[in-house]
Design a protein around this nucleic acid. Sequence first.
DNA 1: TTCTAAACGAGACGGTACGTCTAGTCTTCTT
DNA 2: AAGAAGACTAGACGTACCGTCTCGTTTAGAA
Lengths: 195, 195, 195, 195
Amino acid sequence: MSSSPSSRGRPRDPRSHEAIVDAATELVTEVGYAATSIGAVAARAGVGKDTVYRRWRGKPELVFEAVFTTTDHAPTPDTGTLAGDLTALLRGLIDEFHAPAAAAALPGLLADFAADPVLKARIRSDFLAPSKERLQIVFERAAERGEIATETPVDLVLDTLAGAVFFHIGLVGEHPDPQLAGRLAAVIAKGIEIR
Amino acid sequence: MSSSPSSRGRPRDPRSHEAIVDAATELVTEVGYAATSIGAVAARAGVGKDTVYRRWRGKPELVFEAVFTTTDHAPTPDTGTLAGDLTALLRGLIDEFHAPAAAAALPGLLADFAADPVLKARIRSDFLAPSKERLQIVFERAAERGEIATETPVDLVLDTLAGAVFFHIGLVGEHPDPQLAGRLAAVIAKGIEIR
Amino acid sequence: MSSSPSSRGRPRDPRSHEAIVDAATELVTEVGYAATSIGAVAARAGVGKDTVYRRWRGKPELVFEAVFTTTDHAPTPDTGTLAGDLTALLRGLIDEFHAPAAAAALPGLLADFAADPVLKARIRSDFLAPSKERLQIVFERAAERGEIATETPVDLVLDTLAGAVFFHIGLVGEHPDPQLAGRLAAVIAKGIEIR
Amino acid sequence: MSSSPSSRGRPRDPRSHEAIVDAATELVTEVGYAATSIGAVAARAGVGKDTVYRRWRGKPELVFEAVFTTTDHAPTPDTGTLAGDLTALLRGLIDEFHAPAAAAALPGLLADFAADPVLKARIRSDFLAPSKERLQIVFERAAERGEIATETPVDLVLDTLAGAVFFHIGLVGEHPDPQLAGRLAAVIAKGIEIR
DNA sequence: TTCTAAACGAGACGGTACGTCTAGTCTTCTT
DNA sequence: AAGAAGACTAGACGTACCGTCTCGTTTAGAA
């Protein structure tokens, strides 16, 4: 997709990339998403503005990468029950959203993604992708155990879970009730169970 | 709420108020929340910028009032079952959020509210207040019927419902699946029912 | 000049006039001419803005009256020599221009007068009028004594004197050299004397 | 004088500088000094406001440069008599002040310079500097010829001349009496001559 | 080597919005 | 009708970012 994998000319310095991502994370945490500007990120990273724009199309893409690309590698939970798996999944989601930079960035980030048609299309595919993948597996196993129907809608449940977490973490409180994952998982699991 | 109910001096012109609210609604619908500026609202309303700032502290407060102060007066549903009441409630929420101006404003509006500590405190009290009130009544009636426990957490359910609707309307699709309200209500109702 | 000397309705309160003039003088002295606004003057005088606009067309007229209508009543000097009379006249001019409010207002006031055609026409007739009257008499006496020609141009000399004083007081220094009046008078007197 | 002679980064475009100065000159001439705003200058020059503020601290500095930096290169007159030299000097001063843009800007410009302590200090050093230099030389030659005393005060005479010209050009008339230079020079020359 | 081309730090560039201020007018109730 | 209060339209203020552009310089692979 990028212009050319050409090796002509000076190669991009990987240290710049890292410095920019670090600076973005710090700034978002310190001053919030709205007050974080590309110029300020570049200045803190000791880098020219073009060096940022060369790698990312804008603030939303940069901050998304800076803030949400660490937790993809958690294993899919397998506790033996749907409620248990959902609880584990939710705990992961809450942990991810509750990291200082993530919590600070979340609402503004979603707003910017939603405002741009190109980015909007990526919300589910990029933003929720890792969670959806794991939820899919959890559902398959639950269906095999006969807990839920095979046609249980993954997206509906995922949006519901993500929405609830977003409202709690991003909009309402600083304090993520430690029982939130369990209570929410219990409601949803019971709600979609057969019987 | 405003500074003083003083009757001294020239009273504020209600036509300005209305013209500003109308202009804000139109602009948000046409160009989106981010591209809506106080200056442009004032210009379209045929009003000086001060006249806007005299009534609202900034864009978030103005757009919130412009976009979300029409539907407070829907009656509390009473269908005889929890699932039915929740479906009706959700349909109202979806209708409110799906209005063109509301859908356009929602993500940016929530982001701005979340970014300001003062406004953040008002999200639940002002933003979700009307819905919460009705949900509370629905829960009380369901508890009387023995469908749910008396201590069922209203806020948890409300956040879950609002979060799911927000994700669907604001972030994902233009088209709110007409069955969304029913399916979601069924899951939640079943999830919190006794037994 | 005003609409009608009608005695209908409530008569203007003379205390307002005085309070406005005092407030204008104070503000000009404290914050300077440019930063003095009609609104601020009215507020300090405890008066509505209209009460100011009802009496003066704008800031220049108000400040002019506030700052330059005290010294009209000095007697015409009569020392027996042209140089002596000019010295006395200049000392009066310097004293008038060097008063705190006058020195603070002078440059801005002249700029506003010069920018408005209506006011521009009044600079010489109103602003320099009292000085010109006295200078005329001094010249007539000097002509009778045979010191100067009868057709000596009053305006040219007056502008020269006023310009020199303006440059010293308004633009250059805070400290008006106490010998300025004498030295300037000596040059001019010698310059226009016969022989 | 400006921030840094640094060669780092993109150099300032000289065409912007010229376009701004031209636009300022035109606007001052057309609408006057007070009605000339930085925003309007930038718009007419086809330039962003920052590009103006990057080069000048404000309107006074900009207009001063736009309007008064052309005539520095006139040769010092040498007619053989003090009166002749002064006449030539005054004619130059009158020509400079009487240019459309200069006449329009003069009073407001002096007012703004006088109101700011930093600029005030520059009135004599920058504004009157070229004239003073030439007057100094004229005085030296006149002293050598024995027409005036060696200690004749340059500043006093310069302020007197400039004040007179300012009053005539800037405040009183559009029409600079063609004989003004000669008449004024005659008075001053005679006034400071020995005997 | 020398050449070519891209990356880089820096900062200028044309725009646009901000939130505050003032101008001069208008509209209310009170004296 | 004057007065105090304050709302009204209009528009300038100086600052901050946006995303792009031009500089001079550096760093590589290709000729």
